[in-house]
């Protein structure tokens, strides 16, 4: 009897181990089949999206040279939309050869930027060339964009003693002899710096430079300042010029109408420290009354309890 039982137990154990082996085998097989799919982060069968690149040059007021990139890719709806996480290679031309200077990744808005060195290799005509490429990106098709820019200089002069408030912007470029040379017919735009961006100084805020490379504009006297001292920051810009890209310059003067602080501009505002007295009174009476009643009820309950004790 005992032997039979042992045999039965062994049979059951054998069957269980057989089942387990089978299960292990199936699971291992599934895992092995799935493994390559899991390991390949960006599978080859994923279709790459058609992409496009925009490259522009910006010389800021602090004289730093920058390039700005915008990457777009065709989405499911067939429209070009910002392409995030695109790998970008930036090259500069030196002695007729393209040299890789940096790699960038586009942000969620498909934008990327970088600051260039101060001494860039230039060709005989005093131009420097930059190229941006999307290469071997797993999600986007290859694309490239080239930019050839000549360096220029924009200065903005304000004479604080000038009652006419004339803004004078001067645009120069480096001549073949290395000396500054005025740029004629360059369109200079004049703006006032504001908290969230730049606002044109007036209706005709675009002025072309003359033979001396100068553009002048008489600043209106009614522009409000953003502080009580009357400070205004004026910005002069050459925007998206074919030869020079975008070049900025700025200067400040106390030419604005000082801001007058209103003592109590919104007397009923939500952010006022105190509610109107009538409202406070109303709430105090109504809710004070209700809570007093609650306390009275609680007092009565205490009485109910104490009456038992007395008893």
């Amino acid at each position: 009897m005992e032997t039979n039982n042992r045999i039965n137990v062994e049979r059951v154990e054998h069957k269980t181990s057989e089942k387990m082996k089978k299960t292990n085998f199936i699971l291992t097989a599934i895992l092995l089949i799935c493994l390559p799919f899991l390991l390949v982060k960006n599978p080859v069968w994923a279709q790459k999206k058609e992409s496009s690149l925009q490259l522009s040059f910006l010389k800021k007021a602090d004289q730093s040279k920058n390039i700005l990139l915008t990457v777009k890719a065709r989405n499911e709806a067939g429209k070009f939309a910002p392409a995030p996480n695109a790998s970008l290679s930036i090259f500069i031309k030196s002695n007729e050869e393209w040299l890789l200077i940096k790699t960038l990744i586009s942000d969620l808005g498909g934008k990327a930027s970088m600051k260039l060195a101060d001494d860039l290799p230039m060709d005989n005509e005093k131009y420097f060339s930059i190229m941006a490429k999307i290469e071997n990106d797993s999600r986007y098709e290859d694309a490239e964009e080239e930019l050839r820019v000549k360096e220029s200089r924009l200065t903005l002069l304000l004479d604080p003693t000038d009652t006419n408030r004339i803004l004078t912007a001067t645009v120069t470029q480096t001549g073949n002899d290395g000396e500054p040379m005025p740029v004629q017919e360059a369109e200079v735009k004049f703006y006032v710096e504001r908290l969230f961006g730049k606002m044109p100084v007036g209706e005709e805020f675009v002025v072309a430079t003359d033979a001396a490379g100068k553009a002048t504009y008489a600043l209106p006297k009614n522009i409000p300042s953003s502080d009580t001292l009357g400070n205004l920051t004026i910005v002069a810009v050459i925007e998206n010029n074919e030869t020079f890209g975008t070049v900025e310059s700025n200067a400040s003067a106390k030419w604005g109408v000082p801001l007058q602080w209103e003592k109590d501009p919104f007397p009923r505002a939500l952010w006022e420290p105190r509610a109107p007295p009538a409202m406070i009174l109303f709430f105090a009476i109504v809710f004070g009354g209700i809570w007093l009643t609650y306390f009275f009820v609680i007092f009565q309950l205490i009485k109910v309890h104490s009456e038992t004790k007395i008893k």
Binding site: I290, T293, L301, V304, E307, T308
Partner: peptide
Amino acid sequence: LGWTGTPMQHKRLELTMTIMTIIIIPI
């Protein structure tokens, strides 16, 4: 609350319930 059902306890309970009934509706 040690309720024994005395007339006084009943009276107090009725009073508090009447008050609460009146006050709870507008709230």
